[in-house]
Design a protein around this nucleic acid. Structure first.
Lengths: 135, 135
DNA sequence: CTGGTGGTTATAGTAACTATAAGGTCAATA
DNA sequence: TATTGACCTTATAGTTACTATAACCACCAG
């Protein structure tokens, strides 16, 4: 247990979440209000640390902050079934896949457009033609 | 040439872009200020129609409104090389692919999480464990 | 004791809309 | 003709998840 002062900057370095963002999470109630040093600096515990990691990991999976709030509250009820958690993961998977589908379509269309550019002038540009065209 | 009044609602129906959004585009200068009827209704021409389609198609490829502004201005210089347009398409392709990579990673991780849920209680939930865990 | 780093607050800005309120217009119907 | 209902107008505020800015205070090293 290193007794360095667990200020917001240190927590930021440890978790990869910026100080401003940590304060923002506190402000919207996603993190509990931090305890303060005499001079008013925020101080964090191990628990805060893991709470923040939980948020960061969930964000990395594309969950919204509201989703994460829900996940947290589900996770806090230790004795209950984890069906709710599983459902949220499934739901997120559906969203991610839908977004993937859209992006794949964009990728293909962009490739098609890119391929039909022959380096001429705008007047003859198939890209512009496609974007403007009435089809 | 049907002489129905080309109001914002009609343009919306024709293009699939909502009236509010059309007004918004006008407000931020992406569409020119519409001419007005005596009573103040916006009226649109064929040109407005195709300008809006250009925007909608570009949005469909993931271009930002600022990108679209640039694309428009490139497209308007008929005599110039379309290299700039092509470059923008390439750039967009890079972004889309990067986003695809991220989403694929999310998908795999979500699949992994989903698979490790065995329907027990939160206490034993591997999903929560993974999200909270220090690894 | 001074400088630099890092902490504090509050406010405004970002993208691309969406929602709401409060009102004016138009075409058709009772 | 009066009224209904759909559609138009404006302005303002809310959304998501931050980021940027300003102005100020605390801490530590030299």
């Amino acid at each position: 247990m290193s007794e360095k002062r667990n200020t917001v900057g240190r927590l930021a370095d440890d978790t990869g979440v910026k100080p401003v963002t940590i304060r923002y999470y506190e402000k919207i109630g996603l993190l509990p209000k931090a305890t303060r040093s005499e001079s008013g600096y925020r101080l964090y515990s191990e628990e805060d640390h893991s709470r923040l990691l939980f948020i960061r990991r969930s964000r990395g999976l594309g969950f919204s902050l509201d989703d994460i709030r829900e996940l947290r509250s589900l996770a806090d009820r230790q004795q209950e079934s984890c069906a709710g958690v599983d459902a949220k993961v499934e739901q997120q998977l559906v969203q991610v896949r839908s977004r993937l589908k859209d992006l794949h379509a964009m990728e293909h269309e962009l490739e098609r457009l890119s391929a039909c550019c022959d380096g001429g002038v705008i007047m003859d540009c198939r890209i512009i033609e496609t974007l403007s065209g009435s089809a």
